[in-house]
Structures are given as C-alpha cells and as structure tokens.
Design a binder for these strands. Sequence first.
RNA 1: GUGGACGUAGCUCAGCUGGUAGAGUCCCGGAUUGUGAUUCCGGCUGUCGCGGGUUCGAGUCCCGUCGUCCACCCCA
Length: 428
Amino acid sequence: MSKAGLAAVRGMNDVLPAEIGAWQHLERITRELFAAYGYEELRVPMVEQTTLFKRSIGEFTDIVEKEMFTFTEADGESLTLRPEATAGIARAAITNGLLRGARLKLWTSGPMFRHERPQAGRYRQFTQIDVEALGFAGPDIDIEMIAMTARLWRQLGITRVQLKLNSLGTPDARKAYREHLVTYFTQHAAALDADSQRRLGGNPLRILDSKNPAMQAVVSGAPLLTEHLDAESRAHFDALCATLAAMNIPYVIDPRLVRGLDYYSRTVFEWVTDALGSQNAICSGGRYDGLIDQLGGEHTPAIGFAMGVERVVALLRQGGQEFPRPAPHVYVVASGDRAMQVGLALVESLRDQHAALRFEMNQGGGNFKAQFRRADRSGAPLALVLGDNELERGVAALKPLRQEGGQQEVPLAELAARIPAILTTLNG
RNA sequence: GUGGACGUAGCUCAGCUGGUAGAGUCCCGGAUUGUGAUUCCGGCUGUCGCGGGUUCGAGUCCCGUCGUCCACCCCA
C-alpha cells in the first residue's frame, strides 16, 4: 500500500513495535552470551572507502561486482555502504593500533546493504550480528566459537538448524585445487550450464554450489577440495571435527561449502535451516588468516561469523514464542481539569519512588467510559482513578482490571506505599 | 539481473461472462449523564498500487510501471 509517492525504499523495511520484542530478545541473549565468552562490543561506521571492500571481499565476487551501494563524495572519493562487517572491523583494528600481538575478541551489530533482488529473508538493508576473534590461530578458537553459536540456538529455543563445515586450506592449496577444478570442468565444458560456464573463468569453486539438477553428475565427479588440503590445514580441520564430535556438537562436512568472499581460508562453517525457504543460511563465517596483513596490518590469524538477524527473528516468531509488549503496571484515569493537574503531579511523585514500575497516565481526555476502555486495552492490571469525588476526600480509587471486584479507596499520601503490595496480590 | 504469481477500507477478504464498491474486524459514539473486557444500536474510513489504452461504461479486459511473494542467482 503506497500513499501517493510515499514508500519505503525497495528492500528496506520498518520494524514496528508489534515485532520489536523478538529483536530485543535476540539482542539481549546475544549480548549476555558474548560477554560470557569474553567478547567486547565495538561499533564501526556503516560507510567505508570503496577500496576497502574491493581489497578484502575480492574484486570478482558478486558482492563487489554488482551488489554494493556506492556513491561519489564531493571531492571525488568513492564511498560504499558496508555490505558486511568484517572488513570494517579489520580496518578499525589496524587503524586504531589494536593489534600489536594482542588477542581481540570483538562483536558488533547493525545494518548491512546489498543491492540484490529482495525476497523473503533477503533485503537490501538487513541486520547482522557479527563476532570476530583476531590473533588466534586455532583450531581451539574455531571450536569455542562454533560451540557458542550452538549454545545460542539452544538458548533461543531454535531447533531446526544444521551445522555445515568445510576447510578451504591455505591460499596456496586452494590455488592448486582451483587449477585441478578448472582442468576438470574444462574437460566437461559441454555438460555445464550457462551460469557455470561464466563462473569457470571467475570463480570456479562456485560451480560446486550449483542447484541445477542437470549438473549433479558432472559436479559430483569433480575433484574435492578436502582431498587437496595442505597438511597443516588437514590437521587443523581434523582437530576441529574430532573435538566437535567429542563435545556432541553434530555437524556435516560439506565439501562444496566454499563461501562467497575471497578472504576465507581454512575453516568455514554455516548454520542452515529448512524452515525459511531458499534463504536458508542464518549464521556463517570462517577463518581469514591472511586478510589483515593483506590490508596492511601485521600478520594476524583470525576467525569470525555473521548472523542474519531478520532470519533468526523469523525463526523465533515461527517457533511460536510470544514476545508480549510490556503493559503498564498502573493506568491512571483522571476526569476533569483539576483531576488531570493533580494526577500528573501525583504520577510524577509515584515515578520518583518506584522507578521500576510503569505508570501510564491517560492522555487526550475522554470520559470515564473511554478512559476505562483505554485502561483495559493497555493490559494494566490496576487502574488508579481520580475524579471530583476522590479529590474532595483526598483519596484515589484503585481498581483491579483483571478480576471482578476489589476496588478500594486509598488516601493520596499512602498510594506510594500501598501500590506495590496490591500489584503483588494481583499477580499472585 | 532472469522467470512466475499476486496487489480492493488500518487489518483479513468478497466482488459472477465489464454496468460505476461490500462484509467481518478495528476505531468512535449511544443504551449504562463516574467504571473496561460481554451484548445491542448507530457512525467514520477507499485516488479498487500507479499511469496509459480499449469501451457508452473498467475493480473486472490490454499495455507499461512500482511493490510484495516464490523460484533462479546470491547469501545473512
């Protein structure tokens, strides 16, 4: 529904009060979980120099080639709305001098931007929660990070997820494997579809990801990355798998999991769900041991992951959990100018004494009937009633709204002392 | 970026082979002139996504466009 020329930008959505509960729940759980594992929050800009993303994500990736929101500043500088967070965090660690042999465990969250065709679970502005560990060669940190995500799903009550793992090896090993792959697919070029022929030149590893059923035969005959790993990567990956198994964290090795960003090396992982349609990745990441020195910092092995907040929120809502909007504890009904004056001052003093209680003062007038209707809809368990009758006698009426009867009058001076106990009996 | 489905009140939807828009819900008021949620009565809300075309006449047919959804692609 668009009112004459007024519409949100395509692929960019509002999050309304009715749906914010699930977001805040996820934000609270992750904040506490990351702190428990020793991660600290940092915040980085949403805009960086375009070259940062080209150098880190890779010139020939889909993201850089066709999905970035890029604009030119007045002085000619090319800037880009971040399509992911790792590049900005790596840049921040270097430019703020945070490295120097240090070990950093960091997380951040916020909007990312990719100019893709929108679909359920895929938006042009979307939100990621991002976790990065810099200065750790693993595989112990890989294992702990994956265990942390597994714990997150348990805490959130999300069950329809599966962990996929792979190792991309070192850049050298991957380069050698890539040559094997190009040789193989060139021999079978006739069997490739148009997309795959295009990928053969740019990113042959992605051919392995093809969902075209007609490609299954030629893809399944292709050499596997896991068979061409260098010895160190092999040992790293074996240790990772063995420990996860010992910790009873289920996983499947997916030799075709190659990831779309160039900076990954060795461990890559992805949590997928069968509950969200084709946008099924809810959390994925991997090691990027070479990224920071490639950007000009000192050599710093690192691993990180990004979680798609909209997708995880969709799972939460689908799971049937309720995230009710908080109701006021007390709704204040005040009829008449004088009652309104007295009521406003009274509620301020009640707020002074009970900062944790939510008082909602009726605003916008209305007769008693209308005000009680609003009080009922607010969900408050208790109404505080001020009218001419009460004012004359220096009292307020307290009326329970979730049960019959029980209305009582209380002197104004005693309200602050009595309200908590009355609320307790109403909850019990 | 490619292909397909859909787009009528704030929300959920109806509207037959073209005759000029309806229901439920929500909201507001009254029955109950100081007491909500139930019941009854009454009332408000629409450039029928937008623009063009065909026609005496278009929500209905045609074209374009925008948006949503689905698949591809890509990925979180």
